[in-house]
Every structure is written in C-alpha cells, then in structure tokens.
Nucleic acid binder design. Sequence first.
DNA 1: TGCATGACCCCTC
DNA 2: GGAGGGGCCATGC
Length: 258
Amino acid sequence: MLNGADPIADALGALAAPPPTGLADKVFTAWLAAPSRLGEVFVAFTGHGVQFVRPAETLHGDIDAFAESYRDRFGRPLRPAARAPSGLLPTLRGRPATSLRLDLRGLSEFERDVLTATRRIPAGETRPYGWVAREAGRPRAVRAAGSVLARNPMPLLVPCHRVVRADGRLGDYMFGSAHKEKLLRDERVDLDEVVALARQGVHYLGSDTTGVVCFPTCHNARRIDPAHRHGFRSVGAAVAAGYRPCRTCRPAADATSA
DNA sequence: TGCATGACCCCTC
DNA sequence: GGAGGGGCCATGC
C-alpha cells in the first residue's frame, strides 16, 4: 500500500519518534579496541568509567566472544564507542593517568576494596597477596584476595601483575605467569634480586641511616646505599632491631614473612 | 544452607 | 630448601 493511503499506518507513523537522549547509554555499554602492553585489548566502559578489559589474543580477536563474556558477567549488550574515555589510552600503555575512572558498580565490597588496594601499588614495585588483603581490611582473607584478583575485570588498569607471593615467587596470573614476568620486567622490577634475597630468607630491606624497613621493591628500599642496607626475614625482626615500617610501602608490623 | 573451590600462607618434616 | 598439608575466607552453585 502506498504511503498516505492508509490512515491507520499514517497515525502509527506519526507516533514514531527518535529515542530519548541518553537512552542508548542506559541500555548499552560502549566498547572499543586499544593498544596496550598486552597487545590489543578490548575495553568496555560506561558513563561511570571502565568496567571490563580483555586482551584480544585471549579471545582469538573475536569481539563477539568479548561481548558474550561481558554480558555473562554484567548482563548488558555492547555497542561500539566513538572515542576512548579520558586517561584510558596512556594507562594501557603504562603511563597511569589520574583522570581514568573505573566503574566498580556490581562488585562486592570486598572485591572493590581488593581492587582499590591493588591499584595503589606503584609501577616498578610489588606487594604480596597478604599486603593486599590487609589493605583491603581483611588481613586473614589472603586466599580470598587472590581469588578476587584471579577474576580481575580490569587487568593492566588494576595492576594485579604487581601482586606476588610472600616467598618471593611470582605466583599465578590470569594470562599466565610468563606475561606477569614480562610486565614486571618492563616496569624494571629486579626480579632476579628479589628471588636472590628470598633465597637468603630476606623479605624486607632496612636502612641503618634512616631506621626504616621496606619491601625490597619499594622505591625507598632501592635508594638504600649498599653499605647501609640490612636484610630482614620479618618486619618483627626489623622492629626488634630498632627499625620502623616504611610509611610508603607499609609492610605489616606483625607479619612474619609477608 | 552447605559444600566445593582457589593467582595464598605458614608450619612441619 | 622443597614438598605436603592444614588453615583461612569470600564466592558460586
């Protein structure tokens, strides 16, 4: 039937209207592909911030697989984004931008606390899982903190590769420990020294000029003159020797080896 | 509700 | 010093 010849169709057509502004943003989550230190990554983000990151390689470059993975977890469909949110691209390249916002809605309080604590670990430094659990306010939930990081929705943006085992070993990583090692070496973490110290039972370094004891990768520890550097098995041992925990890296005062 | 599951930790042997 | 096992705790089913 020709347009205009059916009064009912005309009336229905008159009812059609563009969707209200912002409706699409309420229904869809935006996604884009971007370069990163793990190669190309797919990134999903809402108006509240970045929500989900996965390397294209782990999805065989299949954006449909990314969309399915995202929908399984967050229950929303994706649509392509026109541009990246502020701070995303430099942060993915290893230059953290303070303007980058993360969308942590939908996560449990514990998950948010673990991810927020992990985000505070500076590039080039590592912290043990026990440190993350303590900073998250649940000092005994070490294993649970590891479980949260195993499901980290935003690798690289939440630098879970900087969380390592208390005995000096790297521990596991969601994309394999080889990737974890590469990321840390790229950040100039001296993994060989950390392992060598751990073999000697040294998990903390103190300076006898400042009286401060740190994690070995803390930037304050790396500035200690070798002549004034002392290794400790535990913070307790360092405190007994007259040292105080570093206020920057905050090693646990009651820890035995973590 | 209860049970199984882990990117852990630490003690013991 | 390396392996094994028990403890731990948030989460998913």
